[in-house]
Design a protein around this nucleic acid. Structure first.
Lengths: 191, 191
DNA sequence: TATTGTTATACTCTATAACTATA
DNA sequence: TATAGTTATAGAGTATAACAATA
């Protein structure tokens, strides 16, 4: 479709106060009744009303989650890793000998996802799985030397990443506040 | 895999201060060297170290986005709608006569997604597309009577939804603060 | 030639069910 | 029989390329 310029002009984040710029109050009812509205060409002059949704968490979580993922993937292009894989490598590196079950719980990914990811790490030579001596059903997961090297590179990348994502939009204090609120919410939320 | 109880015991949200409970300091190095770690059975006694990741936005955005989606889908089970579809219906209802291109920009979904969603709404009788009288390539999207009825039902559902997701975890003030920060971040973030 | 909407296709993330090998 | 890990498969969400109709 490729209407990037249009997208930039349209109300990017929904306005908190729908009808602030008094001049352009939308004549909803009349347009609704008439049945025929502005043409596409008038688009960039038009503001989109998000109504009550502008106050809701879901919209922001979706947009920001996606934006964060994309930003991360492009920032880590040379390492070819994705955000959740970085999380997994950190957890594996910091907690050697975790089982896939434990990784599943810690990372909030189900068993099948963990296996698929571990298979991929394995194929890239980043981890190894050893059979537990205490329960032959269990596997213990460790970083290989290559995995540890990768983790070191990720540490550097990840160090300034949130700042590079946030840019100048939030101050350090606001970022900390945001993380604190998200952390508190995640800790208490009913799944 | 089904280790729900285990999951609840494992460090649910990553701790901000990795080694707070001084007693159970993990002997990382020795275990790493030995190569053999605790068995799976010792899992619930074990805390997982997330390291620097506990401070990063990405983890929280992923977890909370998923949690929100699931909560919403179960809450809206009888209406059979998903969060982003609700957003779309609100935007269509509040801005009658938008084109798919405009919806694409407003909802941050590409053209193919918009078409697929509109096809689905169409099949359910919720919207109609009219050819623009000014540009025969453009379609103008409107809610049908059934679509408007659906929107009214969604209004009620959505009214208390964030509160039901957040539960008692955050106060009203904290929720407002969180939304304000997310809004500010989304407005300023580089894509 | 460029643009709107559409279709077809693919890739990622997530989830479920079935299988194996141990217990 | 129950559990840990695995495999296969399917479903959403997102993205790309190609196409038809129109400009």
């Amino acid at each position: 479709m490729g209407s990037k310029i249009l997208a930039a002009r349209l109300l990017q984040p929904p306005v908190a106060t729908p009808s602030k710029p008094g001049a352009a109050a939308r004549p909803d009812a009349s347009r609704d009744a008439a049945g025929e509205a502005e043409p596409a060409e008038a688009a960039d002059a038009r503001r989109v009303d998000f109504g009550p949704l502008s106050q809701y968490l879901g919209y922001y979580l979706r947009r920001l989650h996606e934006g964060y993922r994309k930003h991360f993937i492009s920032a880590a292009a040379d390492l070819a890793v994705q955000p959740r894989e970085v999380g997994a490598l950190f957890v594996i590196g910091l907690n050697p000998g975790l089982t896939p079950s434990q990784l599943s719980a810690a990372l909030a990914m189900d068993g099948a996802q963990i296996t698929a990811m571990l298979n991929m790490f394995d194929a890239r030579g980043l981890i190894e799985r050893r059979v537990s001596s205490l329960d032959a059903r269990s596997r213990l997961v460790y970083l290989t030397a290559a995995g540890k090297k990768m983790l070191q590179r990720l540490r550097k990348l990840v160090g300034g990443f949130d700042r590079s994502f946030v840019g100048e939009t939030l101050t350090d204090a606001e970022m900390q506040q945001l993380v604190a609120l998200l952390m508190k919410l995640l800790a208490g939320v009913r799944e």
